[in-house]
Design a protein around this nucleic acid. Structure first.
Lengths: 184, 184
DNA sequence: ATATACATGTAACAAGTTACATGATTTA
DNA sequence: TAAATCATGTAACTTGTTACATGTATAT
């Protein structure tokens, strides 16, 4: 989080949220939990220092306001400079990063174990992905036509990532079914 | 990489590879590059220290042998203790970790940019995922019937992760096509 | 009475990236 | 003769996790 290199990916994630609407750090931790956390996870212990860093770079600014709860809270907004940095990031060269999937790594190691334990791992994943799929599909029903069709609306890109989530969960559910059948 | 906590996920990834066949650090870096790297990526600068750590824990052991190239190389094997640690890891409780997908994070931010740049990002991803899919499908053709059907063969679990990769790339290709159509 | 929500931080550590370092042999 | 392959390491840095730290108000 030095002031010389570019902001971290999390920094841009927070900027993008703040570009949609000013938020407090606390509200950001909640939105980062869901839905953004399903795309880029972060804990409050990383979010608060990142906000301080973004402010040191002049990309956001805060005002102390009365909180919903018992104490004061800081409401952050994106500065003009922050908006420019964000737009520049979105258009900057991008390579799909290498992935890390601990579940599939364990699947690779299943030949070392017995059938019961293999089934246990895959069934737990199956339950998890079916639950996620149901949750995402319930979310999808809430989007209105403008969100579904106008790419300039923030709602559209949220919808687009939700569609990606649904497709992913469908794929994982199908894979688990194939795997469970193969283990029999 | 302290000697007190459990080995890292990468440590188990290397153990699993060595349980299939003894390897040198150099060979491990190549296998980690592909195919394992598509499930758990790591560079040689992380792999070599991890091997040293695994050896300090007594989970692997090495012998210096003549290398293919000009210099000597270290051939690592899993110890009995290493095999037990690996089997215990495979059966240990597992929760699907939170994900980090920078591509989808950028997609979320596309409302901030113009149609041309949005198309550019999605088309690059489209090309990437179609190329991956073709590569995986070519790989799949090479698996024989024993690998496809016997869950106790290491080849089967490799095949299973490859099937997961194919399903994932198919999902991403379909999503990109939907997205490109939506941007029109 | 107890737990949850509100609200924001720091510290110690683990994991991962990039760059530096070396140098022979084989292939184009 | 230039580049790629073989072969193994270290150092500085960034990123992310877990635990520590504090304290009020509201709901159960």
């Amino acid at each position: 989080m030095s002031r010389l290199a570019a902001p971290s990916v999390l920094g841009y994630a927070l900027l993008e949220l703040l570009a949609r609407a000013p938020c407090t750090g606390y509200e950001l931790t909640q939105t980062m939990d869901y839905p953004v956390g399903h795309v880029w996870a972060a804990r409050h212990s990383q979010i608060y220092p990142t906000l301080i860093d973004l402010e040191a770079r002049g990309l956001v600014r805060h005002r102390v306001v009365a909180g919903r709860g018992p104490r004061d809270t800081k409401r952050y907004t994106v500065t003009a400079k922050g908006k420019r940095a964000l737009v520049s990031w979105v258009g900057s060269p991008f390579r799909v990063p290498e992935s890390r999937n601990e579940f599939l790594l364990r699947v690779r190691a299943l030949w070392l174990t017995d059938r019961a334990r293999a089934l246990e791992l895959v069934r737990a994943a199956y339950d998890h992905h079916r639950a996620r799929l149901a949750m995402y599909q319930a979310d999808e029903a809430r989007f209105d036509d403008r969100d579904r069709h106008d790419p300039k609306q923030p709602g559209f890109t949220t919808y687009a990532t939700l569609r990606a989530g649904i497709g992913y969960e469908q794929h994982m559910v199908a894979w688990c079914e194939w795997m469970l059948a193969s283990l029999d």
